[in-house]
Design a protein around this nucleic acid. Structure first.
Lengths: 161, 161
DNA sequence: AGCATATCATATGCATTCTTACGAATTCAA
DNA sequence: TTGAATTCGTAAGAATGCATATGATATGCT
C-alpha cells in the first residue's frame, strides 16, 4: 500500500468527479508534481527496511560511479542544490556510508568516497530501487514507457538538463 | 533565465557527458523529480512579481471553483497533505486572500472562501500560470504535448489519482 | 609578490512536504 | 443516551529545496 497522500481521502459526493477541478488537474505542472509525489511514496514504501530517501540513494549511486568527487561536482551530477546536499551528506556520513577527506591539492574541497559499508548497502538498494521504477511505469505498455522516457528526456534536455 | 538549480554549475571535463551518470538519469523517478524542479523554477520566475508559490496558487484556484469547502476537502482536491495545507492557508489568510469561518453545522470544520482581494489577485495570476505551463511543454511538438499529457494522466489514474 | 576575483563548503532563514500524535467535535451504535 | 470510533485541524519532528551571506582557499592579473 502506498503511504499518505497518494491515498486520498474520500470527497463529498458533490465533488466526486475529477471534472470538478479540471483547470488545475490538466496543467502539466500539477501532473508532474503528482507523479513526483507518487514516485516518492513508492520509493518510501519499497525502501522502508533501509530507511533511505531518494536523494540519499542518488548520492550513493553517483559515488559508486564517480569517486572521489567534491560536493559541488556531486550536486551538479544529480541536480541538487549545493546547500541541500550538505545535510544529506551529513546524514550519510553519520551512517558510515561515505567518507569526506580534504583534498591535499585544494583544501577547499572535501572529496567524497563510499565506505565499504556504503558499498555493501548500495548493493542491497539497487534491486528495490529498480522495483520502484518498474512500479511507477507499470500502468504503461512497453511502447508507452519508451515514449514517456523520450518525452521526459526531450523536455529536460531543452530545459538545460 | 531560470533560477538556481536549473542552472547547473559546470562539470569537470572528465565528467562532462551525461553518459557518465546513466544509471540514475535513466530512471523515471529521477526524470520526474527534475521535471518538477524545472516546473517550480519556471513558476517562481514567471510569478515573481506576486511572490506566490505553486501550492498557494492551487489553493486559490481551487477555492475559485469550490466555495466554501473545508481544509480536508481542499487538500483532497489538490492532493496535498492536510497538515501541509494548514501552513499554506495561514499565509494566504495573512495576505487577506481567503477567509476561514467556522461551519455552524459542524464546528470541526473551518470553511474556506476567497476574499474579494483574493479573487482580484487570482485574476492576475491565471495568465502567468498559463505561461508557465506553455513554457514547460514548449520543447515538445503539439502531438508530443498531447502524448505527454495522456501518459501522465494514465499514470496518475492507475496510481490512485 | 600582492591584490582582486572566483570557487568551495557551510550557516541561516524561509517554505514545503509528509508522518505521527493529539485535542476537540461529531457521528454511530448499543 | 452514553460510549466508541471517526473526522477535523493542528503541533512537532525530520528531510527537502532554494536564496543569501560568510569564511577559507585558490587563481589570475598586475
Amino acid at each position: 500500500m502506498l503511504h499518505g497522500l497518494t491515498m486520498l481521502p474520500a470527497l463529498p459526493e458533490t465533488l466526486e468527479t475529477p471534472e470538478h477541478n479540471t483547470a488545475i488537474h490538466r496543467m502539466p505542472g500539477h501532473q508532474v508534481r503528482r507523479l513526483q509525489q507518487v514516485a516518492v511514496a513508492l520509493f518510501a514504501e519499497e525502501l522502508q527496511p533501509w530507511d533511505i530517501t531518494p536523494v540519499q540513494y542518488a548520492v550513493l549511486a553517483t559515488l559508486e560511479r564517480h569517486t572521489p568527487i567534491s560536493q559541488t561536482t556531486l550536486s551538479a551530477l544529480i541536480a541538487y542544490d549545493r546547500a541541500t546536499i550538505g545535510g544529506v551528506i551529513d546524514r550519510l556520513d553519520a551512517k558510515g556510508w561515505l567518507s569526506r577527506t580534504l583534498d591535499p591539492d585544494d583544501r577547499r574541497l572535501r572529496l567524497l568516497s563510499l565506505t565499504p559499508a556504503g558499498r555493501d548497502v548500495l548493493a542491497c538498494l539497487h534491486p528495490p530501487v529498480k522495483a520502484v521504477q518498474a512500479r511507477l511505469l507499470a500502468p504503461l505498455s512497453v511502447d508507452e514507457r519508451q515514449q514517456f522516457e523520450a518525452l521526459c528526456l526531450k523536455l529536460l534536455r531543452h530545459h538545460g538538463g
